[in-house]
């Protein structure tokens, strides 16, 4: 009896959230049918002519498609890999600094970029990476020629990855640092008594104990293979780097909003959602099987 009353209240608590989800997430999903239509505004979603897979066929025949997918995956994978290694290494280094005050200060500073928007950071980056900017001043100090970072297909992806790592690495160390604090200090003490030096303790105790966390994070990041970072790229790219920097999301944005190719844009977006869904399902399974971790 009491239990029933509880369950009724549970539904009640979920009610507002569910209503909002239905209103703003589920209902717009009917718009996905635009992907299969020659969408004509006056006729609306319900009455526009149905064209089946035409938009998808056009998409696959489009010379840009290949490049967009390659760019998306390459950039995303580079970001994932760098985003796993850098925080890992940084957490290890930070762990070696014993002065608590110093450690706290460094932590506070490195988390900060995570909280700034790409709009703000792009404004800053464009300045810093220009030929007169601070980065090129350093390059020239070492005798190099100034580099046009944002207008070179050679450098653009590296800029994306580096700036992304720069923004997120501090924040991503949090989990590692937590895992580090949970390591039993008696392990180190025992190792020290056995004569293991600093380096040995690092490689034999600390790293092996962090590996499971790293594996878990890797698995979870699988879901991001098609997310190369829309806001970042939108605010940093220009036509000359479309070749290496144009990704699915930016293409969908231009096709849909600037060129009014609604069918094409929706089709591309749908394809991306489907692939992402599959990837998340896979990572959910992997995480559960190998790390015994349920994401939700």
């Amino acid at each position: 009896m009491k239990n029933k009353k509880f369950i009724y209240n549970y539904h009640l608590m979920l009610f507002p959230g569910v209503i909002l989800l239905i209103l703003f997430q589920i209902i717009p999903m009917f718009g996905i049918s635009i992907a299969f239509e020659d969408f004509i505004p006056t006729k609306g979603i319900l009455h526009s002519p149905w064209v089946g897979w035409d938009n998808f066929k056009y998409m696959f025949n489009m010379p840009d498609s290949y490049q967009i997918f390659v760019n998306t995956i390459v950039i995303a994978v580079m970001k994932i890999v760098a985003g796993l290694i850098v925080p890992f290494v940084f957490a290890l280094i930070l762990n070696e600094a014993l002065n608590r005050k110093f450690k706290r200060t460094v932590q506070t500073i490195v988390y900060l970029p995570h909280f700034l928007s790409w709009v703000i950071l792009s404004g800053i980056l464009i300045n810093m990476l220009s030929v007169n900017g601070i980065v090129n001043a350093v390059v020239q100090a070492f005798g190099g020629d100034p580099i046009m970072f944002l207008a070179s297909n050679h450098w653009f992806r590296l800029v994306l990855v580096t700036s992304d790592v720069w923004k997120e690495f501090g924040f991503n160390t949090i989990i590692y640092l937590a895992a580090l604090t949970s390591i039993n200090t008696s392990l180190y003490e025992a190792a020290a008594i056995d004569g293991a030096g600093r380096w040995k303790r690092l490689t034999k105790i600390t790293i092996p104990l962090l590996i499971p966390t790293a594996v878990l994070l890797t698995t979870l990041s699988l879901a991001n293979v098609l997310n190369a970072g829309f806001e970042q790229i939108l605010n940093l790219y220009n036509p000359i780097v479309y070749q290496t920097g144009d990704v699915i999301d930016t293409y969908v944005y231009r096709a849909g909003l600037l060129q009014a190719q609604f069918g094409l844009a929706t089709a591309l977006g749908l394809l991306k959602s489907v692939i992402s869904f599959i990837l998340i399902a896979i990572s959910y399974r992997l995480a559960y099987r190998f790390a015994n971790y349920r994401i939700f």
Partner: peptide, 14 residues
């Protein structure tokens, strides 16, 4: 709902 989105244009229409 986190994974599937109707996309910008349908959301705008909504």
């Amino acid at each position: 709902t986190m994974l599937f989105q109707g996309g910008l244009i349908p959301l705008y229409m909504t």
